[in-house]
Every structure is written in C-alpha cells, then in structure tokens.
Computed example of a mutant assay.
Amino acid sequence: MMKRIFFLLVVLNLFDALATFFGLRLNLIEEANPVMSSLYQRDPYLFLMVKGIFSMMLIFLIIYRKPIKSLLVKYLSFAALAGYCMIAGIHMMWIFHYLA
C-alpha cells in the first residue's frame, strides 16, 4: 500500500512542480511556500530540480524492496497525500479558469 501512496505522491509532486512553474512563469499564481518561493526567485530551474529530487527520493522508496512499517512514515505520507490533493485541486481551478 505504501508503494501506491509514494507513487501518487510522485505524480502529484511532479504535477505541482510543473503547474507551479508555468503558473509563476505566466504570472497567474504566487508560490505560497516561502522556501520554494525563494528557490524559484533564485533560479526557476533550481526550483524544478529540487522538486525532481523529491520525486526521485520517493521513487527510490518505491523500488526499495523492504516494506516500510513505520507508523510515523505512514501518517506523514497520508498527510502529504491529502495536502498534495488539495494543492492539485487549487492548481486545477486556476488552470481551468485560465483556459476558459
């Protein structure tokens, strides 16, 4: 089950990275995360690289053969999944608004 959650987190993280990148590039949104905002302001491609590294770390956990049994990791993963689902919903709203 954790591998599925990590896979969803990879997909949602990459969607967030690309949607945020293009939304900021087109001046349609503002980055709410101060750390990621400062990365984007320093270099937009650094921002994408850091998001990509997060996804690669999750991919490592997907292919890692030993099952993850830590309750803390499971709860944090569920919380991250819920957060990314909300962020994806926000991105979808401004994307549909922009395209309309």
Rank of each mutant, 00 (worst) to 15 (best):
M1K: 11
R4A: 15
I5Y: 00
I5F: 00
F7S: 11
F7H: 10
L9G: 02
V10P: 09
V11F: 01
L12S: 07
F15H: 09
D16K: 02
D16H: 02
D16S: 03
D16R: 03
A17N: 09
L18K: 10
L18E: 11
L18W: 12
A19C: 08
T20M: 04
F21L: 05
F22V: 07
R25F: 15
R25K: 14
R25G: 13
L26E: 13
L28R: 12
I29W: 08
E31M: 04
E31C: 05
A32T: 13
N33F: 00
N33L: 03
P34F: 04
P34T: 00
V35Y: 08
V35F: 11
V35S: 06
M36R: 00
S37K: 14
S38V: 06
S38Q: 13
Y40N: 02
Y40M: 04
Q41V: 07
R42F: 15
R42V: 15
P44L: 01
P44V: 02
P44G: 03
P44T: 01
P44Q: 01
L46A: 07
F47G: 04
F47D: 04
F47L: 03
L48T: 02
V50G: 03
V50E: 05
G52F: 00
I53C: 05
I53Y: 03
I53S: 06
F54T: 12
S55V: 07
M56F: 12
L58K: 08
I59T: 05
I63D: 02
R65K: 13
P67Q: 04
P67I: 06
K69W: 14
K69T: 14
L71H: 15
L72E: 06
L72Q: 10
K74N: 09
Y75H: 12
Y75F: 12
L76V: 06
S77A: 07
S77C: 01
A79G: 07
A79D: 02
A80H: 04
A80P: 06
A82K: 06
A82T: 05
Y84M: 03
Y84L: 05
C85S: 13
I87K: 04
G89F: 08
H91E: 03
H91I: 02
M92R: 14
M93T: 15
M93D: 15
M93L: 15
W94F: 07
I95Q: 10
F96K: 15
H97I: 15
L99P: 07
L99G: 10
A100L: 15
A100C: 15
A100M: 15
A100V: 14
